[in-house]
Design a binder for these strands. Structure first.
Ligand SMILES: NC(=O)c1ccc[n+]([C@@H]2O[C@H](COP(=O)([O-])OP(=O)(O)OC[C@H]3O[C@@H](n4cnc5c(N)ncnc54)[C@H](O)[C@@H]3O)[C@@H](O)[C@H]2O)c1
Ligand SMILES: NC(=O)c1ccc[n+]([C@@H]2O[C@H](COP(=O)([O-])OP(=O)(O)OC[C@H]3O[C@@H](n4cnc5c(N)ncnc54)[C@H](O)[C@@H]3O)[C@@H](O)[C@H]2O)c1
Lengths: 204, 204
DNA sequence: GTTTAATTGTTAATTTTTTCACAACGTGAA
DNA sequence: TTCACGTTGTGAAAAAATTAACAATTAAAC
């Protein structure tokens, strides 16, 4: 089903952001080499990635930005309906929540969860913080499919299990631990220390 | 010089974390299939990745954790000497600083920078916040090679240029903008919205 | 000592991803 | 109309990454 390579999906998401900025700047058409210049990918790569999307440009004027965006959008399955939640409103969790609030992306954070009674019941950046024990019902009611996990590392495995039980389909994990959960749940790990180490390695 | 593929480097960094946890749990030896189980990579992949590192395990007892760690360490060039800095101590910047402080990795954040006079001169999580104007001298004095960029998106390009001028070799960029700088500077972009969108796509 | 069982390092095969190359196309100039 | 130009979509080639396969090796069992 998900035959499109992860790399391609990542780039499509990036193209969308880039092309959206061009549209916001008043541009109406775009060529693959223009996207290439700012994304770092080659023009051929971009055309190939776009093959799967189902929208075709024209040799005469390139891609009509409006239609291209629509195409990528639909391909990625980003709709208003889909929603995310964030688990753990510590310093990182609140920073991410603030970022989503100011950027206002299509995929919204519809709910937050924390175990700390001092945080539950409070609205942070427009999002209500629920007690973690309400996870299952809130996730079901709001039709939330993905979760951002920003709890302390000792709590991460347990919180992930709770999320899976609540019916979540994918987790973006910021805790530095490898989650041991069902293989049909998509997990993406993001560790900032690992990221810095990677940059350090390639900064020779 | 950097002939090792990025993917391999990323995995090596991950293996190191995993193996370190095993060591901390008292384990002394490890087999490729054990690393495989928790990392998600295949045993063959792990052995192949390890080929470049310069340490060999034995068919009899697998890898001696102490020596393996040492090998990966040296291969990655992670030494006490190398240092990072963080630019922009907003909510995200302070969260990252706190994370590094508590995790205490080899690659330390040796300095922070901000333009806000209310922040400069203050020590956050053990790290002094310098005025952004001191960037060049501080980076030179402390031999800092990589930077974590967490300034508002409008400031990112300008701050990046300042960093390059100060002699930085790599940037981990959290601002949602593609930096336009010299190609010999290694840039890794990390956008949380893009990450969530990727998870959403694969959570079918 | 010899055998057994398990695991490594590495070469070869396979699969995946990227790049190349070019026919086909549409536009605008002559 | 015809031509020249610049770009797309895509099949084919090339490159890169992953997986498979196996001889070599060593500890422990017998
Ligand atoms: N701060 C960073 O930049 C950073 C970066 C990468 C990873 N991390 C990791 O992300 C996690 C959070 O970091 P932080 O600095 O925000 O920590 P934090 O301690 O400030 O916040 C953790 C929050 O999670 C809540 N929590 C605890 N258990 C919970 C549970 N079972 N369910 C729901 N909420 C729960 C706590 O009440 C707290 O509000 C940690 O694992 C940290 O290692 C942090
Ligand atoms: N908050 C998040 O989770 C998140 C996630 C992804 C990306 N981002 C991006 O990261 C950046 C920071 O986010 P934030 O929420 O921490 O914002 P913030 O406004 O809280 O913090 C920005 C900080 O940068 C400082 N600053 C401004 N210009 C500077 C300069 N030229 N040099 C040094 N410091 C400077 C400001 O004084 C402030 O302290 C933004 O670009 C944001 O879009 C944030």
């Amino acid at each position: 089903m998900n035959k499109t390579p992860q790399k391609t999906v990542e780039r499509l998401i990036q193209y969308r952001r880039i092309v959206q900025q061009m549209r916001d700047a008043g541009q109406e058409k775009v060529f693959s080499h223009q996207i290439a210049r700012v994304s770092g990918a080659s023009p051929a790569q971009i055309r190939r990635d776009l093959m799967g999307v189902g929208y075709s440009g024209s040799p005469a004027h390139g891609y009509i930005i409006h239609d291209l965006l629509q195409g990528i959008y639909e391909f990625l399955g980003l709709t208003e309906k889909k929603g995310a939640c964030i688990v753990g409103l510590g310093s990182l969790g609140r920073a991410i929540l603030g970022y989503f609030h100011e950027q206002n992306p299509v995929l919204k954070i519809k709910a937050a969860f924390d175990t700390d009674p001092a945080k539950t019941g409070i609205v942070f950046h427009g999002t209500l913080c629920h007690p973690a024990s309400d996870m299952a019902s809130v996730i079901r009611d709001k039709e939330i499919t993905v979760a951002i996990l920003t709890v302390p590392v000792e709590q991460a495995q347990q919180a992930a299990q709770q999320l899976v039980y609540a019916g979540i389909r994918g987790i973006l994990n910021y805790a530095p631990v490898v989650l041991d959960i069902r293989p049909d749940i998509f997990v993406e790990n993001r560790d900032m220390i690992q990221a810095v180490e990677k940059v350090a390695y390639f900064s020779k």
